[in-house]
Structure formats: structure tokens, C-alpha cells
Amino acid sequence: MRISEGEEEITAYLSGDIDHHSARDMRESIDAVVQMKKPSLLRLDFSGVKFMDSSGIGLIMGRYRLMALYGGIVRVVNVPDELERMMNLSGLNALDIIERRGVKLEAAK
């Protein structure tokens, strides 16, 4: 997983399979950078994700809570079509953090 760091924002490029086993490493890598940089925006880019079970939802929710601690926000971007059903099931839609193609959500308040 690649993480790119800007001044105020961090983007984590998730890739491969996200399950209970792989989510742990992803969580640790992301959190280490977030805790050091305390960015106002954490972008989770799902374009490289081939498979995801509910552990991926836990991963998003956990980062959402962590960012909230610092007054920052999370954006989930480039979700492959195959993962849409999982995202819709999760209730994450209510949080308004998933950026659908062509629909940009407002940046940090």
C-alpha cells in the first residue's frame, strides 16, 4: 500500500484483498502517518482493491473515528463497481464520505 502525504492531506492507496488479516497492516500503516501528520483530510483510494469483506467497512469506520479525533475528515474515493454493494450495505452512505464518480463532496469544513 502506498501513502502519499501532502501539507494538509494524506492519500492511502489501498490495494489487493481487504480482509480481517490484511486490514491490520493497512490500519497500522495509515494510523502511523495520520498520528504523525494530523492532516485535515484522509483520502482512502480504493481503485486497486480487488476484494473486500466487512473488514473493509471496519477499516473505513475506524479511520473515520480517528480523523474525527483530530477534527479531520475521511473521503473514500475510486470505489470499483464490484464493491458498491458492500459499501451500500454498510450504512456508510449516511455519513456522506464516499465520493461517487463525478460527484465531488465538499472539502473539510
Binding site: R27, D53, S54, S55, I57, G58, M61, L89, S90, G91
Partner: peptide
């Protein structure tokens, strides 16, 4: 849905809901 006994473990409580839906 959303019921979990392991919230500290970043479990979302969605496993059964996913199995049911998929």
C-alpha cells in the same frame, strides 16, 4: 445488522447481513 461483540476490534457487525445479502 450492526450488532457486534467486538467493537474494539474494528468489527462492523455486518458479517451476517453480508452473508444474507450475498
Amino acid at each position: 445488522p450492526l450488532f457486534t461483540t467486538a467493537p474494539s476490534d474494528e468489527r462492523a457487525g455486518l458479517g451476517f447481513a453480508v452473508m444474507e445479502s450475498f
